[in-house]
Amino acid sequence: MDTKQVNQAARITKIVLNVIFYTLIALILLYSIVVITSRGASDIPNIFGNGFLAVETDSMVGDNEDSFNPNDLIFVKILKDDEKRNLQVGQVITFIDHSRQGRLNTHRIIEVRPDGVRTQGDNASGPDLFITSYDDIVAVYQGKIGGLGGFVLFLQTQLGFGLVVLLPIFLLLIYQGIVLFMHIYELKREKLLIEQKELQEKAKQELEAEKERIRQELLKELQEKNKDK
């Protein structure tokens, strides 16, 4: 592989790593925005009313198309007050579960009532023991990605965030530092070579000028000797 191919490969590698680096930065910013906005939507991380939740239990394991398993990642839409009144039997909702110290739960509606809805997990033998008021309904199920919830749960831990986010950024920062150092070194080396070439050219010109001066002096001396003869 010649020098040109090596330089081209190095440039491509640099571009790819830069894309990865800035993509990670963008994802971290997006993740931070999502976490911050979750404070205003009953702890559901969301952007513009569309959020996601990692499934931790098996209460919704079933054969329905919108059933889901532990460690799945489900997507939900945050509901406005008027939208909560239009929910129907069979829809899957996320609500504040006061039997679980106010934590969020996601079950299927099996009955719609004037004062709220009754829910049941697809994997449960019977309905939930309480009526969920419309005020406690937070969101409605939209879709899922199987298995991704486990990764999100791991990412929310200090170890997961450190390994998946901080460590790659740290390594990329080191790489960027090395690339910057090499770039500065290369610029200085090129500048030094240019200065060295200029000095050599200047020395060559001075040498040629000195040769010309000596030649002119010798020529002048010869001319004077010829005149004396």
Score class of each variant (00 low, 15 high):
R189F: 11
E186W: 07
I93L: 10
F21K: 11
A209R: 14
R39Q: 03
P70E: 14
T23N: 13
R108V: 00
A203W: 03
I74S: 01
K14E: 02
Y141I: 04
Q88A: 08
V112S: 05
L104T: 13
E210C: 07
K225R: 11
T106R: 01
N7E: 10
Q205K: 08
E221V: 09
V152F: 14
R85D: 07
A41D: 02
G177V: 04
P168T: 09
K188D: 05
D2G: 15
V61S: 03
Y31L: 15
A203C: 00
E190R: 11
T94V: 00
N64R: 12
M60Q: 00
S59P: 05
Q120R: 07
Q200V: 06
N71C: 08
F68E: 01
L171I: 06
D115L: 14
F170G: 12
R11W: 09
V89I: 11
F95Y: 00
L30P: 01
L163H: 11
Q88T: 03
V6W: 11
L104A: 13
G49S: 10
K202P: 00
V117F: 07
E206M: 06
V34Y: 12
R118H: 10
D115H: 14
K220H: 12
G150L: 14
S38E: 07
I145V: 03
Q223K: 11
E212Y: 12
I78T: 04
V138S: 05
V55N: 03
T94A: 00
I194M: 06
K229Q: 10
I78G: 04
E198F: 08
E195L: 13
G62E: 06
T37E: 05
A209G: 12
A54Y: 05
G49I: 08
L29I: 15
K211R: 15
Q101S: 13
I178V: 12
T37R: 10
H183F: 13
F52T: 02
G160E: 13
K204I: 13
N46I: 01
F181D: 03
L218N: 11
L218F: 07
G121T: 04
E186T: 05
G146M: 03
E190F: 11
N123R: 04
G121S: 10
I169Y: 12
V165T: 13
R108G: 00
V6K: 13
V179T: 15
I109L: 05
Y22Q: 08
K225W: 08
L219A: 14
Q158H: 07
E224P: 03
D136M: 02
K211N: 15
P45N: 02
Q200A: 09
K197W: 07
P114V: 09
Y175H: 00
M60H: 00
K191T: 01
Q91R: 07
I145S: 00
I110R: 03
L207M: 14
R215Q: 08
L155Y: 12
G90K: 06
D97M: 08
Y134A: 02
I184N: 06
A41N: 05
T132E: 06
K220S: 13
L172H: 06
I96S: 01
Q158D: 10
D122P: 01
G149F: 02
I137S: 00
Y175W: 04
S42Q: 13
Q200D: 05
I109F: 04
